[in-house]
Each structure stands twice: as structure tokens, then as C-alpha cells.
Amino acid sequence: MNGLFLATVFHLSVAFFLLGMGWRCLGWLRAPVPLKIPLTPGPKTRVGVAARLAGETIAFRSLFRAAPGLWVVAWLFHLSLVLLLIGHFGGLVAPKFSQRLLGLTAEQFTAQAQLSGGAIGILAAASLLGLLLRRIASKPLRAISTAGDFFLLLLLLLIVATGLAMRFAGQIDLREARAFVSGMRDFKSAVPSPDSVFTTHLLLVCALLVYAPFSKLVHMAGVFFNPALNQTNTPRERRHIGSGLGPARVVFPPAKTP
């Protein structure tokens, strides 16, 4: 497929994703937090709040306490996503830099990219399948799952599957892929897409990026805005100025004074 076209679609998708997420965050930010509602016992300092949020977003602390089995799968899935993101960036967008950073030869670098990419891809696929099976197999989970939940899992599975296909079935030429990505990055040439699987992979990612701001994927940003987690537990140390939720209306006979 035409490289310039793909590049345009991809860049637009990324822009859409960023703007969309920003717009969702702005939407939340526009609404005030009228009351102090931190979950207690909770941190009393900003540092403590940062630690609480870090614990939730890096270690999934609450999930660990809630459901250790799910925690393993969910944490591995998110970990693989992050690693894949780093890997794609390091291996395709900035290969020279990454190679130098790792201190490897070109061959070594390619070999390790193939190896780690494949391994993490399998991990992502396995954990996604686990999440999907869980949604299907468990009665309570089936009851709470929406069409959107399955759609997202399937979309992600397809993305990972096409990625793995490039790696294992008909080895993609990394040099071609890099050339395409750098062409895309710089908008300067119209390098054609290496193959149709690559094109599919990329377009699916674009679909995910565009869908994300409308979906539960906003949780990646939302958790940081959650007053139950990000407020300090200091209602009595400092006055929390809430917004006015309209003036109180009094319809009672005048109260007796004590």
C-alpha cells in the first residue's frame, strides 16, 4: 500500500489519540472536586500520594490484594504492552540510538530484537487470551462484560497476532520495516509498506488509537485524576474549598435557636 497514505493515516491516528485523550482529561478537569473524598487510611502528604499512585499504576497494588490470579495476568499483559511499545520505538524509530545504547553490533541488535520481540509478543498474546477466556468462562464476568470489552480484547489480539505473524511466519525484513518507519516518521519519502501483514498490523493499531479516547482505555489517564486516590487525607489540616453546588434552599419553618 502507498506509504505516504499509511503514514498520513498513522500520524492522524496518533494525533487523534493524543488530542482525544487530552480532551477527555480536560473534560474531567473542568468538573470540580467539591469534597474531600480520599480513601482512608491514606497518605497525608503529596509524596505519599505519589507513592500511592505509583503503587497502583506500577504494581497494581489494590488488584493484587483483590484478585492475585487476575493480578498476574493483568500485570503481565500491561508489562508486555509497555515493553512492546519500548521495543517498537527502540527497534524501529530509533534503531541506531538503541543499538549504541545497548552496545551491540548490528547483527546482534537485530537478533535480540527478534528474540525479545517474539517472546514478549507471545507473552502479550497469552495474557490477552487469558483475559478473554476469563471473560467467557466466569459467570459474573460474563454478566458485567459489554460488547466493547470483547471488541477491545479482540482488537488487541489481532494486533498482537499480526505482529507475531511477521515475526514467525514469513520473517519480516527488519531493514525494510525500519526504512518504512523512518520514512513515515520524516514524511519525506513514500517508501512502500513491506507487506500486507505489516499494513494490517499498522491499520489495526490506528483503529485502536482512534477508538481509545471513546473507550475504557481512558483508564490509563483516569486513574491519576481519581480524587479517592490523589487527594491527601488532610481535611482537617487544610480547608478544602469545594465548589458551590448551588445555594442551599431552605423550605422549613425557621429553626429554633438552641
Binding site: W28, A31, P140, P227
Partner: peptide, 24 residues
Amino acid sequence: LCQQNRALPLYLDSCVRCGACADK
């Protein structure tokens, strides 16, 4: 209410339906 209380739209938007809360 969504305009007056950030928690409300935020919670309605960002639940991932993981079910961790179900048996709690």
C-alpha cells in the same frame, strides 16, 4: 452532577470491568 463532581464522570468512564470489586 457530572459537571459538578469530577469523580462521577471519571468513574463512569474509566471502569475496565475487570470484576475485581465483584466479590468485595
